[in-house]
Design a binder for these strands. Structure first.
Lengths: 255, 255
DNA sequence: CAGTGGTCTAGACCACTAG
DNA sequence: TAGTGGTCTAGACCACTGA
C-alpha cells in the first residue's frame, strides 16, 4: 500500500524491490533463518504485480541471499561460516573441513601505522592506523604457518584481541569480521610464491633455515569491492585449491 | 505450431524448452556466437507464452550458455578459452589476460604406461596408456615453468603433438581438449607446495640449484566429475588466484 | 482447509539497435 | 521504422505444507 518505489526513474521496479529487501537483510531486520514476507504481502507493500516481486526474489535467491521452500516461505539463507566462505577458501575453513585439528596462537596484536605494502594494497593513507595481528597456526598440533594480518582501524573500530579465539570458528578472521562488524568478504586475491624461510619463521615453525616455504599474500574485498584486510603468511603445508567452472552445472528438477 | 513438449507430465514447460535448446547447442545446431531464434519464434515453435520462453532462456543465461543483447538477439555464448575457463584459471589464460607474452616449447611428447601418481589421481589402471607431454613455458621470453601433463589415451585417442602450438590459445591444453574432443573441464583441483628446484629444472629455468620454487599439481575433471588430466609443474613466478563468493554480487543496470 | 511458492497465460509499453 | 529483448500487469491453476 505504501510507495517506497520511484516509478518515474529508469530503474526497474524489481531491482528496487530486491535492493530494499537486501538492505533489510543486511541491516538485520531479517536475520539468517528468518522468513521474510510472502509474495502476496510484498505485492501489497510495494504495490507491484506478483511477477515483479518474483523477479526480485529470484535475483536474491540466485545471489545466495534467500532460499525458498514451496508451501513454507522465503527464508534468509543461513549464514554458517562454512557456507559464507563457500569458495572463498579461508584457511580456517579449508583445514576444518578436513578431519584435522586447527589451533591458532596469537603472537602479537597491536595498533600501528600502516606499513608500506598495506597502504598500497588496502588503498589507505600512510597516516592511517591499522590493527596488526601475528598468529602461529597449528594443524594436528604441528606448527604449519605464521601469518600477519592487517585491518584498518577506521573500518573496524574497537577491534579487540579477545574477539579471536585459539580454536573453533572464532579463529577465522572472516567469521570475526562478520560477527562483530557485519562485514561480508566478497572476493579475495591471493598471490603465492616460494621463498626460503626466514630465520625467525624457521624457529617458530621448527624448520632448518633456508628451507623452501610458501609465501601467500591475500587482499580481501568487502562490499563495493573495497579492500578491507591484508594478510601475509608463510606455509609449510600444501595449499589445496578447487576451481569450478559455472558453465557445466547439472540441474536437477527436485527441490 | 509444433508440439515437441509433453504437456501431461509433471515436468515444467520452461524446463523442457531449456533442455531442448541446450541439446541443440550441444549437438552443434547452434554454435558459439550464433544467434538462436527470437522469443517470438520460440513461442510459436513450442506454443507457449512469452514468459515461459523467457524463463527457459533465463536459466540458460544463468548457466552461462547464452548471452542476450537487447535489440540484437540471443547468442550462444562464445567459447573463447578465456570464457570457458572463466574461473578455472588455466595458466595460459592467466598470463594471456595480462599484457605479457606466453610461449610454450614442447620438450617431450610420448605415450607411456601411466606412472604411479597418475594412475592414482586419474583413477585408471596401471596398464593404461597415457600421453605424457613435457613443456617449458616462457613469459616475456623468460623461462618460468616446466610442466608435465598426462592424459589417458583412452579418453583422447589420436592425440597428436601437432594439436599444440607454441603460441596463442592452442598452447592451452584446455583449448585443445575442447576443440578436438569436445571435452569441457568443469573442475580442477590444485595442490601447491614449495620445493627446492631440481638440478634439471634449474638448468632449464636458468636458476641456481636448490632455489625455492612452487610445485603445483592439478587434476582436471570433466563431465560427471571424471578426472581426465593430471599435470605437475614447477613455477618461478607468483601464482595469482582470485576467489569470489557468489553471495554478494553487485548487479549493474547497464548492459 | 487456507496459504505458500511454482508454473503459465495473454496481454502491454518501453529502450535500444539496425537497416 | 520494424524488430529485439527488458519490464510490468492481472489474472489463473497447481502441488505441497501445516494447522
Amino acid at each position: 500500500m505504501s510507495e517506497e518505489l520511484k516509478r518515474d526513474i529508469p530503474i526497474p521496479l524489481y531491482y528496487q524491490v530486491s535492493q530494499i529487501i537486501r538492505r533489510e537483510i543486511e541491516t538485520g531486520k531479517y536475520g539468517p533463518g528468518d522468513y521474510i514476507p510472502t509474495e502476496m504481502e510484498l505485492q501489497e507493500r510495494f504495490n507491484v504485480s506478483r511477477a515483479t516481486v518474483r523477479q526480485a526474489l529470484a535475483d536474491l535467491v540466485y545471489q545466495g541471499l534467500l532460499e525458498r521452500r514451496r508451501s513454507k516461505g522465503t527464508m534468509v539463507a543461513p549464514m554458517r561460516v562454512e557456507e559464507t566462505m563457500q569458495d572463498l577458501a579461508s584457511f580456517t575453513n579449508q583445514v576444518m573441513h578436513s578431519s584435522h585439528t586447527l589451533v591458532t596462537r596469537i603472537l602479537d596484536f597491536k595498533q600501528m601505522l600502516a606499513p608500506e605494502p598495506v597502504v598500497e594494497q588496502l588503498n589507505i593513507g600512510p597516516e592511517d592506523l591499522v590493527v596488526m595481528m601475528e598468529r602461529l597456526r597449528f594443524v594436528d598440533n604441528e606448527p604449519v604457518a605464521v601469518e600477519k594480518w592487517y585491518a584498518p582501524v577506521k573500518y573496524f573500530p574497537g577491534l579487540n584481541r579477545k574477539f579471536f579465539k585459539e580454536t573453533g570458528v572464532e579463529q577465522s578472521t572472516y567469521y570475526v569480521m562478520m560477527k562483530h562488524y557485519g562485514t561480508q568478504i566478497c572476493r579475495a586475491q591471493d598471490s603465492i610464491s616460494a621463498v626460503a624461510v626466514s630465520e625467525r619463521d624457521a624457529r617458530l615453525l621448527g624448520l632448518e633455515t633456508e628451507v623452501p616455504v610458501l609465501l601467500r599474500t591475500r587482499v580481501s574485498y568487502g562490499a563495493d569491492d573495497l579492500p578491507v584486510t591484508y594478510a601475509s603468511g608463510v606455509y609449510i603445508i600444501r595449499l589445496n585449491i578447487t576451481f569450478e567452472s559455472n558453465r557445466c552445472r547439472t540441474f536437477e528438477l527436485k527441490d
